[in-house]
Simulated assay, not measured.
Amino acid sequence: MKSLNIVKIGGNVIDNQDALNEFILAFSKLEGYKLLVHGGGKIATKMAENLHLKTKMIEGRRITDDHMIDVITMTYGGLINKKIVSQMQCYGINAVGLSGADGNLILSEKRSKKDDIDFGWVGDPKQVNGKWLRSLIMEELVPIIAPLTHDGKGNLLNTNADTIANVVGVALSSFFDVSINYCFELNGVLEDIHNQSTLIKDITYEKYQILKKNGVIVQGMVPKLENAFDAIQKGVKGVRIMNHRSISKLEKEYYDEFTTIH
């Protein structure tokens, strides 16, 4: 099977136009089949503030009420997605911007209340139209996927971008040798979040459990790694966590510069 690189970009890179420009240029030079999933939470928060809407977060997760889903849709599916698509075009990449509603790409369930917490219009994916997505890729289009899915009832759902990279990777693993690359502003998984030189180069599930127990892996890195191990278990060839600048080195085997998940 041919190889496919799925790249998820998030963190402070989306929020920094210079860093984003640098990443898009590097991504455009990545050879072979590729696909991009993006986040953009900080920009959505700023947009909400401009509209005098208060952002509510619980354990790092955004409460998405009727007003916030409109902000999320405008920001993720519009502003961020289309800016990235247009920048890709200027580098000769024939990109196509998608949400999970387009082509019934990602059907999700609205998250149920838990411990009296109502997350609102937040979705957990249950089905991916991998065959349709494959057809776009084989037409040499580069999908740019926003973190929005739908529930089949006419509602859009705010959905974690790391999870989208996971489920899309699993769905496409029947057609390609898939690698998922989680890119952000750090070098990978670090023993000391304040020291970029403390990169952990390889993590197995057993090692992950120890690092988590010892408080080395916390907060947003936990769901990222949970998604990584889930993807590998379900057929994805490999997962890497890296600095956005390392995307240009994927095919050159610079394994000392990012975290590889086994």
Rank of each mutant, 00 (worst) to 15 (best):
T259I: 07
G238E: 07
P143H: 00
S86F: 10
I144Y: 01
N195R: 10
Y205C: 01
T64C: 08
A19Y: 15
F229D: 03
D102C: 12
Y91I: 01
I58H: 12
E253I: 13
V170N: 09
E49W: 05
I200Y: 13
L133H: 07
S246N: 15
Q196V: 10
G11W: 02
I14C: 05
H52I: 09
V167S: 14
L133E: 04
Q89I: 03
V167I: 15
F184H: 14
L98R: 08
I203R: 00
L211R: 00
K213F: 02
L79Q: 13
I137L: 11
K2A: 01
I241M: 02
V216Y: 06
E226D: 11
Y76V: 03
F23E: 00
V239M: 04
Y33C: 04
K8W: 05
F258L: 02
G77M: 02
K34P: 06
L148K: 10
G78W: 13
S112Y: 10
L156Y: 14
K249R: 10
L107E: 10
F23L: 11
T163H: 11
A146D: 04
G39P: 08
Y182N: 11
L172R: 03
F175P: 01
V122Q: 03
K153V: 03
M1F: 03
E140H: 10
H67V: 01
M221Q: 07
A231F: 12
V13S: 02
L141K: 14
G10V: 03
E31K: 15
G40A: 06
K153Y: 14
N160I: 03
Q127F: 13
Y205T: 00
I9K: 06
P147K: 08
I203V: 07
N187P: 02
E140T: 05
T64V: 06
A228I: 05
A165Y: 05
G235T: 10
G130M: 05
K234S: 08
A48I: 04
C183P: 09
T260S: 10
I43K: 06
L148A: 02
I117F: 08
G235D: 02
N94C: 13
K126T: 12
V239P: 02
V85Y: 05
E139K: 15
V178K: 00
F258C: 13
D65Q: 08
S179R: 15
S197R: 11
I24E: 07
K252A: 12
D18P: 13
I193Y: 10
H150Q: 14
G40E: 03
D18K: 15
K46N: 13
V239S: 01
G169P: 06
D202V: 03
K153D: 09
L136K: 11
M88E: 04
W132G: 11
D18H: 09
K42H: 07
T73H: 07
T260E: 02
I84M: 14
